[in-house]
């Protein structure tokens, strides 16, 4: 489902649709004004970068998938990474999160080098990622998915697992998991197998599970892909919630409306390189971006931004209301006849 191309949506009509909970305004933004003195050029210096990438390159045979000269990610802000398909966004994500090794280059997280650090250690350093193709752990319950996310669990050591020494920590972890499930409106799914959930609920669980690591930096690879408009609004609210908690967010997205709504800073990649950086408005006005991103046949997406940012709903019960929920839940849970 998530692999399918997203349907065309007429912009300006969906983002405000069904608005019940009111709009988030700029004064809610904890990093408002931070980017005022930042130059809108590729590789620009940020006042307080949490992540710095230098000369990061990755080649597959003769193809240079990623060639990033310099990139700084501002702490506490929502940074969008956009670019056409094949621009190297996901590969760059994999390089930053240790899932792939760059041919050259250095990455610094919060002042310490993370070159060659494996993914599981990055989670302990406060960096967590989600995946483009959602990875719900199907044959585990939703609460077990959540509990897995906690780092530094005593009970994950073989011999200590046999003793009751991890019980107290387990209770804390479970309480934290329940709290996050409540925040993401998933409490009713708590004891179901994650595999019975709809695509949208899986996206929510994956994000909630990532938060169990208590990350400083959250990297979301296409968090809205394959999600219906109502749930997109809910997800947007949750992403803003991360920023409100002081976490840094980097996310890959194709939907220009979404990018414009929630990002403080936009980084544009094309053919492996960063071709532009800037505020959403800078990017919308940048002819290079429009050419690279949309080719010659660009149209409504960027022009619609001239009308000003569309209002965004706060998270509501839209997970329950999501029309695909009932259908896919039915499809994923066959008849119970014959099961033990």
């Amino acid at each position: 489902m998530t692999g399918e191309p997203r349907p065309e949506i007429v912009f300006g009509s969906t983002a405000g649709g069904g608005g019940a909970a009111g709009a988030i305004h700029d004064h809610d933004n904890p990093v408002a004004g931070v980017f005022d003195d930042v130059e809108a050029i590729p590789g620009s210096k940020k006042p307080d970068p949490i992540l710095i990438a230098d000369h990061v390159t990755k080649t597959f045979g003769g193809l240079t998938a990623v060639d990033v000269e310099h990139l700084e990610i501002q702490r506490g802000a929502i940074t969008a990474l956009i670019g056409p398909n094949g621009a190297g966004k996901t590969t760059f994500f994999n390089l930053l999160t240790g899932f792939d090794k760059p041919n050259t280059g250095h990455v610094v997280l919060d002042g310490s080098s993370i070159d060659g650090v494996p993914p599981h250690k990055l989670a302990n350093k406060g960096m967590v990622r989600t995946f483009q193709l959602t990875k719900a752990l199907s044959r585990m319950t939703v609460i077990d998915n959540m509990k897995l996310g906690a780092v530094n669990q005593t009970g994950e050591h073989f011999w200590r697992a046999l003793l009751p020494v991890w019980k107290r920590q387990e209770e804390e972890v479970e309480a934290r998991g329940d709290k996050l499930l409540d925040r993401f409106n998933l409490t009713h799914m708590r004891d179901e197998f994650a595999g019975t959930m709809s695509g949208g609920q899986r996206k929510l669980v994956e994000m909630a599970r990532a938060l169990m690591t208590d990350p400083k930096l959250v990297m979301l690879d296409e968090p809205m892909a394959g999600v219906n408009p109502a749930l997109t609004q809910s997800l947007l609210g949750h992403v803003k919630g991360l920023r409100a908690e002081g976490r840094t967010v980097i996310f890959v997205e194709h939907d220009m409306d979404v990018v414009h709504d929630i990002s403080d800073w936009v980084v544009v990649m094309a053919e492996g390189q960063i071709i532009a950086e800037g505020t959403p408005d800078d990017i919308a006005a940048n002819p290079d971006v429009i050419d690279a991103y949309l080719g010659s046949s660009h149209d409504a997406d960027f022009e619609s931004w001239d009308d000003g940012p569309a209002p965004v709903e706060l998270p509501t019960d839209s997970t329950d209301a999501a029309p695909n929920d009932a259908a896919s839940t039915d499809a994923a849970s066959p008849d119970d006849e014959g099961s033990a």
Binding site: F99, K121, A123, F131, K135, M140, L148, V151, A210
Partner: peptide, 17 residues
């Protein structure tokens, strides 16, 4: 639980530390 997570999806388990 970590073993089962690896059975379900190794990359997800690695991303979660």
């Amino acid at each position: 639980r970590a073993l089962k997570a690896i059975r379900e999806d190794e990359d997800a388990a690695r991303a979660l530390g």
